[in-house]
Design a protein around this nucleic acid. Structure first.
Lengths: 212, 212
DNA sequence: CGAGTGCGTACTGTATCCAGTGTCCAACGA
DNA sequence: TCGTTGGACACTGGATACAGTACGCACTCG
């Protein structure tokens, strides 16, 4: 009998998560300086774990580290966002095809859940989260840890920040995307790799980043 | 007049580079424990920068960090390698197509250089380096920093270590691949995206990882 | 009046120190 | 004899202290 091994999280993890939220939510605006001493005091930790968290965030592209000058929130311009979108166009359609070709069949449940959540969510922010979840679930279904990792980097660092906030503000927001997501999920379920790839590519292409 | 701004490297950077070399060269074997105190003493630095370097290496997938238990060199099995290969099969052909479609034309010089170096190199290790260089140059030519980054992660963490060392030992080694590389470079130069993608895919598919 | 220089301050980078946790082994009890 | 438990040891995680670097401002000199 084994107790289900609870997840202990180090201070570094918690600081990392906290800063990530603050950056993605815009509470820490793009380009904002991140003075170690001040930040550490605010978060109630020492500088050591803060520094390690900052390094990790730098690895994810969320902050930039200049030697002897300190850290600041990454200031991503439209070019960066467009590049992330291009990279998604490479990775996600291919992942969809892989997911459809998997045997035993890929796990569709997370995708279905994300779709349902997106339909149920009235507010734009939640809908956006659900959207992100669907896309990550799709890549996850490919069974490739690397592709999953890459997709996560693309979504976290470059996309959630500003691209789709602008887009979601338009028209009906992102809630309307659920239908397209469902078609992709169906194609994966039907093991039609060709179709899944095509639908995913067209879906992404249909929603390019918007210059702010 | 501006002096060309020399690159200053922090201790963290240097430790990171040193460990990376030792891991990739096999001097630090897969699964080896990395006790902080010992390592720090050997490298002649304190534990603080060492820890930050370890975190960075963990982000690259070269080492694994277990809370309250320490770091060890990532122990990649055949599954990991095969997954990296699958991911390359997604990224590199797409990058080749993007490179061919670029205007102004993609920079072919690094690719040509890598090919020449591969032809000139008699020893397997050098040839392997040149091989890696070609593939990274190809992805770089796509103009997408993200794809370049991903390719680098795949090559560094999973591939150089063991996959192709086994393969390079076979038959004529990797020197013979130069011809295939040249065909890819030519297709990119001719702006034939379709062909570049196809050739790249077939090239990679022709050289899967070998179980050791 | 303007350019350059030197100093002071604020911050980062590194080293050291302390507390907390995991692991191994031996002693004890069933 | 085998399982359990207690404790010593070794190591990591976090906090603090110190050294080094960059930036801004005032002062000086042309």
């Amino acid at each position: 009998m084994s107790v289900p091994r609870i997840q202990i999280s180090s201070v570094v993890d918690q600081v990392h998560a906290a800063l990530r939220v603050q950056i993605l939510s815009g509470e820490l605006p793009r380009g904002a300086r991140l003075p170690q001493e001040t930040l550490a005091a605010e978060l109630g930790v020492s500088r050591t774990p803060l520094r390690e968290a900052l390094r990790r965030l730098a690895g994810e592209g969320l902050v930039v580290l200049q030697p002897n000058h300190g850290a600041s929130v990454a200031d991503l311009d439209f070019g960066d966002m467009r590049d992330a979108w291009t990279a998604r166009l490479v990775i996600e359609p291919a992942a969809a095809r892989l997911a459809a070709g998997r045997s035993p069949a890929a796990d569709l449940e997370p995708m279905r859940e994300a779709i349902a959540r997106q339909r149920a969510q009235p507010d734009p922010a939640g809908s956006l989260d659900a959207n992100r979840e669907f896309h990550l679930a799709l890549v996850d279904a490919s069974g490739s840890p690397h592709l999953r990792h890459f997709a996560e980097l693309l979504w976290v660092a470059r996309i959630s920040v500003a691209i789709y906030t602008a887009q979601a503000a338009q028209a009906d927001g992102s809630a309307g995307w659920a239908g397209e997501h469902e078609a992709i999920a169906d194609a994966v379920a039907a093991a039609d790799g060709e179709l899944a790839e095509l639908l995913t590519r067209e879906h992404i292409r249909r929603h390019p980043p918007i210059e702010t």
